[in-house]
Amino acid sequence: MLNRQLRQIDTSYFYRVIWKRFRSNRFAICGAMVVITLFILSFLAPYVTPYSPDDLDAYHVLLPPSSAHWLGTDELGRDVLTRIIYGARISLKVGFVSVGIAAAIGTVAGLFAGYYGGWIDQLLMRFVDIMLCFPTFFLMLAVIAMLEPSIWYIMIIIGLTGWMGVARLIRAEVLTLRERDFVLAARSIGASDTRIIFLHILPNAISPVIVTATLGVAGAILTESALSFLGIGVQPPVPSWGNMLTSGKDYLEFAWWLSLFPGLAILITVIAYNLVGEGLRDALDPRTQI
């Protein structure tokens, strides 16, 4: 009972301090607002725009931005703004699912390697070393091109090739944490390894993962757009920012809006996630003074 109360007081105070530190960072707040806006837009996409992303309109092909079509129309008469909003769904999904996979694998691997040490540590860390040797983009290309192109494969592959950094981070944290008194205390009252790892060590090791994951979302969005651009990512007619740029590049000379706006969408989103990530890093790092 007392234990639970203590923990509640403790964590709520912790989060309040973090939030206060995060809030004082103007850039981070800007980034967070962009991210939240993107979420709202992509959830409410059908209500935000009067067009549908696949509405072909042979009479309004390649129109420049106007009051009817704010960001113009593409080569099939589809509204560019609508497709960018629906494309945001893909980007957010790819970002979160792939980073979720990477963070989960990396966290578990790092926890086990750091906590148990010995041959488990050796095995896992050598595996990390091997994975880090591969040019990630090569590995992804090889796998995805040989499978049927599908957004799920892309998310899984980005996740499977992106967990190594998290594993190293967590392991390093665990190595110092496992010698601390509270772990010893937990062990002395007979807590199981699983309980110690996930209940006592994990909560204390998680902050670098949050930062890396946030930055990882930005990276995953860039990767997805690059894969889609090479034609092995999200397949048309499903709109993704990457494949919009691919089809737009053929019309670069007389329809600049097809290339400009999806590119800007990627740019703004990636910057926003980075600002949030850096803000979180500063807020979570006890050494920085804000």
Partner: peptide, 21 residues
Amino acid sequence: FLGFAIPTFWLALVLMYICGV
């Protein structure tokens, strides 16, 4: 930050268009 966040292929395309075409 701009350099990091700009998709490489997009920047390449735009530069190709401006400088080349």
